[in-house]
Simulated assay, not measured.
Amino acid sequence: MSTPTVDQSDSTSYGSVDQLLDDVEEALLVREERITDEQAYALADLADQAMDPDDTALARMLDLAHRVRLAWCGEQVSLESILSTKTGGCPEDCAFCSQSSTFDTDVKPQAFLSAEQVTQAAIDAQASGATEFCMVLAIKGPDDKAMAHILESVEVIHEHTDLEVAVSAGLLDAEQARTLAAAGVVRYNHNLESAESFFPRICSTHSWQERLDTCRHVRDAGMELCSGGILGMGESPRQRAELALALASLEPTEVPVNFLNPRPGTPLDQQLVLDPRVALHGVALFRLIIPWAMLRYAGGREVVLGDLQGTGLLGGANGMIIGNYLTTLGRTPQQDIEMLSELQIPVKALTGLL
């Protein structure tokens, strides 16, 4: 399985936006096949035009991405709630993360949540409209203690709710992946975070290849793979396409799209947030490169997109994390549900939930 990287000096042969978008539409909506790497990078090159409100390139990309989403995935939007069951104290030095013990941030290490705390959080998530529940642990990868905590939590969530359970607990080996799958974990999240060519700028304590290997173990164990990244860490538009192409090669079920919300005390705390139009370009770009996946709005959407969040849901996204994120506050679930209602977008929900 190849993982494409990009030479930033590469250029494409597309002479016009019209021809590019016509060819992409032909591939995705007529032939029902994925676009080429050349087309992906050509779409990435439209990021500069996306910043111009008088240019139609972004509107056309968003319209095409929405039609692709409807054709490949349907109308419904999925809502997911996440819970950090082990917060802070992570030994890794990911430059965007305030949970790293390497940086001086306001996030302090906390012990594992109890089974009762996990159960109540899951019950509350289901009551607020979530159909999935993701447990997140701030660790490099699970040791025996962490695995025991995960397995106990999965059991109590299944006992008290109808939620599908997902887990995000760092790097896995093949045996750990098989154990989680056998326990009923439907989906495992492990983001590639960035393009391989950009990754050394954000992390030195583990490699991009280790992340890729974990994703492959998840797939081989029979779990669904949830893997995405963060936009706005200083990467180029072409590196966003590189990341999306690498993700596409893994055939993930779900792709979280996060937007950097710079955290005080981290190396990226002075990074400017993305222009909202560039962020929307990124959403459309990911949809056109990964047409089949659940493209889930995740962290930073409120800060970066503000009132334009609904535009992304009409431009390729078909999932959202609702409620609070790991170390930052989100909107209330009710605000997101009201937004979906105003947009007349149906919500994927368990029977009797909404």
Rank of each mutant, 00 (worst) to 15 (best):
241 A>R: 03
195 A>G: 15
189 N>I: 04
300 G>V: 02
207 S>G: 09
292 W>E: 13
318 N>K: 00
242 E>P: 04
280 L>S: 09
285 L>H: 10
291 P>T: 13
210 E>Q: 15
244 A>C: 14
232 G>E: 12
249 S>E: 15
314 L>N: 14
259 F>H: 11
229 G>Q: 01
205 T>Y: 00
210 E>S: 08
317 A>K: 06
267 P>M: 03
253 T>F: 14
248 A>Y: 07
315 G>S: 05
239 Q>P: 00
287 R>C: 02
254 E>V: 01
275 D>F: 01
240 R>F: 02
313 L>T: 01
230 I>D: 09
316 G>A: 14
208 W>I: 00
282 G>Y: 03
192 L>P: 11
289 I>R: 06
277 R>N: 06
289 I>G: 12
299 G>S: 10
285 L>P: 13
285 L>F: 13
301 R>L: 03
303 V>L: 14
207 S>F: 10
198 F>G: 07
266 T>N: 11
287 R>L: 00
263 R>G: 06
320 M>I: 03
252 P>K: 04
287 R>S: 00
244 A>W: 07
319 G>E: 08
276 P>Y: 00
212 L>T: 09
278 V>L: 11
267 P>C: 10
297 Y>P: 01
232 G>D: 12
243 L>Q: 09
314 L>P: 06
194 S>I: 08
224 E>S: 07
317 A>W: 02
229 G>T: 07
309 Q>E: 15
190 H>D: 06
227 S>K: 03
298 A>Q: 02
231 L>Y: 13
297 Y>W: 14
194 S>E: 10
315 G>P: 08
254 E>Q: 03
215 C>G: 08
237 P>N: 09
309 Q>N: 14
270 Q>H: 15
203 C>Q: 11
253 T>C: 05
318 N>R: 10
280 L>Q: 04
294 M>K: 07
244 A>N: 13
274 L>E: 04
196 E>D: 13
263 R>V: 08
257 V>K: 02
273 V>C: 13
291 P>S: 11
277 R>T: 02
259 F>G: 07
263 R>K: 15
214 T>V: 01
260 L>C: 10
269 D>G: 11
294 M>C: 04
250 L>D: 05
195 A>S: 15
316 G>E: 13
282 G>D: 11
232 G>F: 05
202 I>Y: 07
287 R>Q: 08
209 Q>C: 05
312 G>P: 05
282 G>H: 12
283 V>P: 03
254 E>A: 10
234 G>W: 02
235 E>D: 01
206 H>K: 06
310 G>V: 00
203 C>T: 07
